[in-house]
Amino acid sequence: MLTFLLWLLLLIFCWPLALLALVLYPIVWLLALPFRLIGISVEAVLSLLRAILMLPARALRGRHG
């Protein structure tokens, strides 16, 4: 909702820039999508590696704790 209000404010003060932003937003979103997917994949792999490496420490802590 705040984004829409800011866009309306931009539309009132500088309508060509607001229309340009309206047209370019989907294009920028599509260009950023592969990078977001790569980021999610890298985060998942790092979480898996962390879980595998921390497994012996968790097993020892559970046995003695």
Rank of each mutant, 00 (worst) to 15 (best):
L20M: 07
R50K: 12
R63Q: 10
L55M: 08
L60F: 09
V42G: 04
V42Y: 10
P56T: 03
A44C: 12
R58Y: 04
W29S: 10
L53R: 13
W29Q: 13
P16H: 10
P56A: 10
G62I: 14
F35C: 01
L17V: 14
S47Q: 14
S41V: 12
E43N: 08
R58H: 05
L19Y: 12
L46R: 11
A57D: 00
L49D: 04
A21P: 00
S41Y: 05
V42N: 14
R63F: 12
R63G: 04
L20H: 01
I38H: 07
V28M: 15
L22G: 13
L30K: 04
P16D: 07
A21C: 03
E43R: 09
V42K: 13
I27A: 05
P56N: 00
L30V: 15
P26F: 10
R63S: 14
P26G: 09
S47L: 06
L48S: 15
I38L: 07
A51D: 03
L55R: 05
W15M: 06
E43S: 06
A44M: 06
I52K: 06
A32C: 10
L17E: 09
R58A: 05
L30M: 14
G39A: 12
L46H: 14
R63W: 15
S47T: 11
I38E: 10
P26S: 08
A21W: 01
L20P: 00
L49G: 11
P34A: 02
L30I: 11
A57Y: 01
R61D: 11
V42C: 11
W29P: 01
E43C: 08
G39N: 04
P34Y: 00
S41N: 11
A18Q: 00
V45I: 03
I27N: 02
V28T: 10
L22T: 12
I27P: 06
L48Y: 02
